[in-house]
Write a protein that binds this DNA or RNA. Structure first.
Lengths: 148, 148
DNA sequence: ATGGGTGCAAACTGTTTGCAATCTG
DNA sequence: CAGATTGCAAACAGTTTGCACCCAT
C-alpha cells in the first residue's frame, strides 16, 4: 500500500543491478527507515543504537557506508539540519517531497510541502543546465515556544 | 554606495550595543568578507589562510568565535553546502537574498534569486508560528560538465 | 572461488574549549 | 581596572579508512 516500500526482493534487485550485494546489514538498516511512521530523519548514531537495542550488532562504519550507498542509489536523502551532524530519510517520490523548518534554539523541526518551490527549483537548475538530484528548502528560525 | 558596508565605526557601534568589543581581529575578518567582489561564501579555514597571507596572524579559534558571533548578530549567514564544512557569507538584505545550486561532483556552486521562494518560506513559517532568521533553498545536482 | 562487505581500531577533519596572558571600553 | 577577547594546545564529535576475515553471488 505504500509505494515507497522496499521488499527484500526489490532491494536485492536494486543492489544487484548495480553490482552490489544484499547483506543482512543493509536489509536491517533499510527496515528501520521503513518502520518510521512518518519517514523521520535519522542520524547514523541513532540507527546504530536503535539496531543495538534490537540485538542487531552492526558496526558504525557499516552504518555510514550503507547510508552513503543508499544516498547514491537514491533510496535515501541526506539532510543538513541544525544539529551538527547529518540526518537521513527515505527519499520519497516528488509528490511527497517536503522541506524543513528548524528552530535554531530547541531544534524542533517541522516538515511542509510546497510544489511551487520544487517547480521553481527545477526551473532554475535546468536554466543552468544542472540535473537536479535533490531540492531542499530549509527555514531557520525560532519556534513559538523559544521566541522571546 | 553599498548599503551593507560596515565601517569601523558602525561595526564598533553594533558590537558595543551588545556589550561586545571591537578588536582588530573582528575588524579584519569582516573586512575580508567585504572585500569579496560578490560576497562569496568563505570557510573558516579559507579566512584563516587568507589572513595569514596578508600577514595577519589570527588564530583559528578566534576565526571560529568571530564567525559565530557575527552569525548571532545577523551580520553573516551560515551555509551548509556540500563540502563537509560550513561556509559563511555577508548577510545581505532580503532584496539580494539568494539561494544555491551545488554540483555534488565538482562542488561548483551557482547562486540565484527568487522572491517567490522567500515569500513561500515566510508564509509557511508564519503559519507555524515561527519567526524566520534565514531561508535557504539548496539544489543538489550535477552540473553540465559532470553530467554523464 | 572471487570480489564485494564487514568489524575493528586507528586516523582524520572540522570545530570547540580551558586557561593564562592581553587588550578594550 | 574589570571583564571581554585572544592564542595555544588539548579535547571533541562525527565521519572515514586500512586491513584481515567473511560471505553473497
Amino acid at each position: 500500500m505504500d509505494m515507497t516500500f522496499y521488499s527484500a526482493e526489490l532491494l536485492k534487485q536494486e543492489l544487484n543491478d548495480r553490482g552490489y550485494r544484499l547483506t543482512p546489514q543493509r536489509q536491517k538498516i533499510l527496515d528501520i527507515f521503513q518502520a518510521q511512521p512518518q519517514g523521520e530523519h535519522l542520524s547514523a548514531e541513532f540507527l546504530h543504537q536503535d539496531l543495538s537495542q534490537e540485538g542487531e550488532h552492526i558496526s558504525l562504519s557499516t552504518v555510514y557506508r550503507t547510508l552513503h550507498l543508499m544516498v547514491n542509489m537514491g533510496l535515501l536523502r541526506e539532510l543538513e539540519l541544525a544539529e551538527g551532524h547529518k540526518h537521513y530519510e527515505l527519499n520519497r517520490p516528488l509528490r511527497e517531497h517536503h522541506h524543513h523548518l528548524v528552530c535554531v534554539h530547541c531544534n524542533k523541526t517541522l516538515e511542509f510541502s510546497d510544489t511551487q518551490i520544487d517547480q521553481v527549483g527545477e526551473k532554475q537548475a535546468n536554466a543552468a543546465g544542472y540535473y537536479v538530484l535533490d531540492c531542499q528548502l530549509t527555514l531557520y528560525g525560532t519556534c513559538p515556544e523559544c521566541d522571546r
